[in-house]
Design a protein around this nucleic acid. Structure first.
Length: 565
RNA sequence: UGGGGCGUGGCCAAGUGGUCUAAGGCACCGGUUUUUGGUAUCGGCAUUCGGAGGUUCGAAUCCUCCCGCCCCAGCCA
């Protein structure tokens, strides 16, 4: 794919830094990496990092690696390794041959741990996890040295080798870097760099029973891959001194630098792995790819084009201020792209039958409809028309308020690409509900234009009853009512779940052309919104998901009217 | 109370001492166009840059102090 021009001319501080490093000769090229831990599915927050890392590499003619930060086998799974690759590719990025795993370097990392021991910069500690915590001090009080801190290099080496050999149980011992227990930066208070974990690793199996921690793996792996600019989020800012310390004290082949930017937060959803995991495991949603989820797989199933996500992330920019972006911004990016690319189709979600009494019984015809008014090359299609059609229930009102332009008794409206019709009769059931309409059509208005130039205030979408395909349509709203789930009372984000985030409509009718929609295509249902087929559907009964609705001024007007009484 | 960051309109975000009585986008309000109450288009929307002092002919940009918010006490990443 090609790099897309950024919304603004200016560069963010990271691109500024890279451009400067290239100009001054500090680096001859740029190498970045996207380093997910395979312990969950990627979400739109990761998209920001993916677009940054791959985007920067493209813009400066460098490369970007996909590297799995797989240092904790108790949380990581092959399923996640697979889904992450699929999602990054779907988003539109290609790592070529540069697929790596931190675990590729376990042997090297082990060697470097021994190097630290030899140089007196690491020691084996027998303290328990609780004791280590107690010795660590607090945010305001310095820590105390472990009684095992002064073991000799020989003793440490022996113990560390026995740790690797599997002589000790989980948690019995750890390897710690010997830095400064009094540091104001807690990451420097002798951080644990190796722990005993008798657990099978998705890549290395049973080979290891000790695993490096994030801090001992990340920077070194960057160095091994010759990463020039290691981009991560703000919470790692105070890990940078440790990152640098390790680079300085180890015989690494290159000297990468870490830069931090603010992670993405979005209103009306959650983006923490813990919470997403909880939604899935407690079955609050149908799975990681539930269309209401902010995961890339969820957005994909919802019909959001990857280009809309790239555009969104690009427009936000990169900075260091914590920010929460309104969901409306994302939705706006979806609409903007989809408006230009999505094929127009007609579908009736809540059908109301209309019988056109002066249209010959048994007759029918094909009418031409434009596929996309924004894109002439999309061509046109034929839509069947006949005596009985369905229109949207909300497009008719028996006793309309002044601003309602749609169908009403005695009123004439246009059926898109078809004819002008006039409502002549309202048929109700015993309960008084409108169940059917009678109408007449003007044969002179075929295609939707009146030869006498008379105007009509509304154009309705419709579907021929005899030709329509029955379908299920799923309407989605924000997964959470609250802009910031869990911000209220007890911090219980589940309490903010929107009980109406999914509405299933079972009696929908689609124009015939919709039967050919491919699974990865998002179309516009005219006047309603953008929709895409869901894999749950079948040829006989397709299922469509609403990606995002069209902007709806009428709905807004109504809402205002209700507000004002 | 230790360390590290950040504070520009409702939400993002440019701005790196004069061209800033502060760009752009989203949202919002209003007009025009329209066979989608969609799209497009036009106009409106911060005399002010967390606050107070100071330096300077001149500050959102430099200095000082203050205030607010975020992150860190996993053998998670």
């Amino acid at each position: 794919m090609t790099a897309e021009p950024s919304a603004t001319e200016s560069r963010d501080f990271i691109r500024e830094q890279i451009a400067g490093d290239l100009a001054s000769g500090v680096h001859e090229g740029v190498v970045t990496r996207f380093p997910p831990e395979p312990n969950g599915y990627l979400h739109i927050g990761h998209a920001k990092s993916i677009c940054l890392n791959f985007g920067v590499a493209q813009e400066f003619g460098g490369r970007c690696h996909l590297r799995f930060d797989d240092t904790n086998p108790v949380k990581e799974e092959q399923e996640y390794i697979d889904s992450i690759q699929e999602d990054v590719r779907w988003l539109g990025f290609d790592w070529g041959d540069n697929l790596f795993y931190a675990s590729d370097n376990f042997e090297t990392l082990y060697t470097w741990a021994e190097h630290l021991i030899e140089t007196g910069n690491a020691y084996v500690d027998d303290l328990s996890a609780d004791e280590i915590r107690a010795y660590r001090g607090t945010l305001t009080e310095p820590g105390r040295n472990s009684p095992y801190r002064d073991r000799t290099p020989d003793e440490n080496m022996d113990l560390f080798r026995r740790m690797r050999a599997g002589e000790f149980d989980n948690g019995a011992k750890v390897l710690r870097a010997k830095i400064d227990m009094a540091s104001g930066n807690i990451n420097l208070r002798d951080p644990v760099i190796y722990r005993i974990l008798h657990a099978a690793h998705p890549r290395t199996g049973e080979t290891w029973c000790i695993y490096p921690t994030y801090d001992f793996a990340h920077g070194q792996t960057d160095a091994i891959e010759h990463i020039t600019h290691s981009l991560c989020t703000l919470e790692f800012e105070d890990h940078r001194p440790l990152y640098d310390w390790l680079i300085e004290h180890l015989p690494v082949p290159s000297r990468p630098r870490q830069y931090e930017f603010a992670r993405l937060n979005l209103t009306h959803t959650v983006l923490s792995k813990r919470r997403l995991m909880q939604l899935v495991s407690e079955k609050r949603v149908a799975g990681w790819d539930d269309p209401r989820m902010p995961t890339l797989s969820g957005l994909r199933r919802r019909g959001v084009p990857p280009g809309a996500i790239r555009d969104f992330v690009g427009r936000l920019g990169i900075a260091k201020t914590n920010s929460t972006v309104e969901m409306a911004y994302l939705e706006s990016c979806m609409r903007e792209l989809l408006n230009k690319t999505a094929a127009r189709r007609m579908a009736v979600l809540r059908p109301l039958k209309v019988v056109i009494e002066n249209y010959p019984e048994g007759d029918g015809e094909l009418l031409e409809a434009v596929n996309n008014p924004e894109d002439e090359s999309a061509g046109s299609r034929q839509i069947p028309f006949s005596r009985e059609i369905y229109i949207e229930q909300e497009d008719f009102m028996e006793d309309p308020p002044k601003k309602f332009f749609r169908l009403a008794p005695g009123r004439e409206v246009r059926l898109r690409y078809a004819y002008f019709i006039t409502c002549t009769e309202v048929i109700k059931d015993e309960a008084g509900n409108v169940v059917e309409l009678r109408a007449t059509y003007d044969a002179e208005t075929r295609g939707g234009d009146s030869p006498d130039g008379r105007k009509v205030k509304a154009t309705l979408h419709w579907v021929s009853a005899a030709h329509a395909i029955p379908a299920e349509v799923r309407l989605y709203e924000h997964l959470f009512d609250a802009p910031d789930p869990g911000a209220g009372k007890d911090g219980d984000f589940l309490a903010d779940i929107n009980p109406n985030s999914l509405e299933v409509l079972n009696d929908c009718w689609l124009e015939p052309a919709l039967g050919d929609t491919s699974l990865d295509e998002t179309v516009q249902f005219e006047r309603l919104g953008y929709f895409c087929p869901d894999p749950d559907g079948s040829a006989a009964k397709p299922v469509f998901n609403r990606t995002v609705g069209l902007r709806d001024n009428w709905a807004r007007l109504q809402a205002k009217g209700q507000q004002n009484g």
